[in-house]
Amino acid sequence: MSMLKFAANLSLLFTERPLIDRFAAARAAGFDAVEIQFPYTLSPEQIKQELDAHELNLVLINIPAGDWEAGERGLACLPGRETEFAAGLDQAIEWACSLKVGKLNCLAGVMPQDATAEQVARTLAGNLKLAAERCRQAGIELMIEAINTRDIPGFYLHHSEQVLKLISQLELPAAALQYDVYHMQIMEGNLISTLQQNADKIGHIQIADVPGRHEPGTGEINFTNLFKALESQGYPGYISLEYIPQGQTEAGLGWLATWMTQDERNELECSS
């Protein structure tokens, strides 16, 4: 029986429904954990009610990332936006404490055109130090994610090694790499060796296949080998399904049955 644990990303899965209704859908599909990229369109009270009603854990949320509609993908590397970043960090920590969320993800953002490389590096370092210390004080783990530059041109952190070096050089407490299999397959490949070599530095894993960012089995990644490797190294955290379903979410969950417990499998079969 697989010991891997899977979480549903409610920002990308079950989008046939309003966000408030996706908690029930995730539970019906056999999940006991969820994550939300940006939950801030709901209130903490609404989310807590859904988590309690459906016996779900919320394992990760993102720190607010600026004006998403305008193309912003994080504030941490943007000179002049430090006050806004700090306010978003405060909000995220408040929500995480209220909802018992153990991990906060920080998106560095897109390299601004009107700043020097030195300014950007200095800004990111200062913001990450602040975030890591505040998270440590709150008993939360700070995740830092690398994102591919094909989908988001100019994203500042785009390789695993960049994030790992920052965590080491800045001596960030309570910080780890958020390893997104989809982004890293595009940027660097060598998924299994990276996961194995950095097992103690990776705090959260997200998955989607390449190309298309759809469910496992739709692209080039050998998820059977990937999951076996994670099992063999005893990966203790959640693997989050952060993909865009090709059709209805439940119809694309068949691949997951092999890796679920029998109780979870029964729920998944009932929901399909």
Rank of each mutant, 00 (worst) to 15 (best):
E84R: 15
A96C: 10
A121R: 09
K100Y: 04
E82W: 01
E145D: 11
V101R: 10
T83Y: 01
G126P: 15
C135D: 04
L99N: 04
I140M: 12
P79L: 03
E94N: 10
E133L: 13
C106W: 01
A96Q: 03
T83A: 15
V120E: 00
G102T: 03
F85E: 10
R122Y: 00
Q119S: 11
C97V: 04
E94D: 10
C77V: 09
C77Q: 04
A132Y: 06
A108E: 00
M143T: 01
D114C: 12
A86E: 09
I140Q: 07
F85K: 14
M111W: 04
C106T: 00
E94V: 03
G109C: 02
L107K: 09
D114Q: 13
C135E: 05
L124Q: 12
V101I: 04
G80S: 09
T116E: 02
A146R: 14
E141T: 07
K129W: 02
G109Y: 00
V120Q: 02
D90L: 12
G109P: 04
L124I: 10
T83K: 15
R136F: 13
M143N: 15
G80I: 03
A86D: 08
C97H: 07
I144Q: 13
Q113E: 06
V101Q: 09
L75N: 12
L128D: 03
R122W: 00
G88Q: 13
M111C: 05
I93D: 06
P79T: 06
C135P: 04
D90V: 07
V110L: 06
A87S: 14
I140N: 08
C77P: 14
P112I: 08
Q91S: 08
K103H: 04
C106A: 15
L130K: 12
T83I: 03
E141Y: 02
L124C: 15
N127Y: 05
I140H: 05
E118M: 13
N127L: 10
A131P: 11
V110P: 07
C135G: 05
T116L: 08
E94I: 06
A76Y: 00
Q113Y: 10
A125R: 06
Q119R: 08
T123L: 06
A96H: 02
A76W: 00
A146N: 13
Q91M: 13
R136I: 05
T83D: 09
W95V: 00
L75H: 08
R122P: 05
E82M: 10
M111G: 00
A121T: 08
Q91Y: 07
A87I: 07
R122L: 03
G126V: 05
V101N: 07
T83G: 14
Q137F: 14
K103Q: 11
G88F: 08
A92Q: 12
Q137C: 14
L89V: 02
V120D: 00
Q137W: 12
I140C: 08
L124G: 14
L75T: 05
W95C: 02
A115E: 01
G102H: 03
A76L: 06
D90W: 14
V101S: 07
K100W: 01
W95M: 04
A96S: 09
A87E: 08
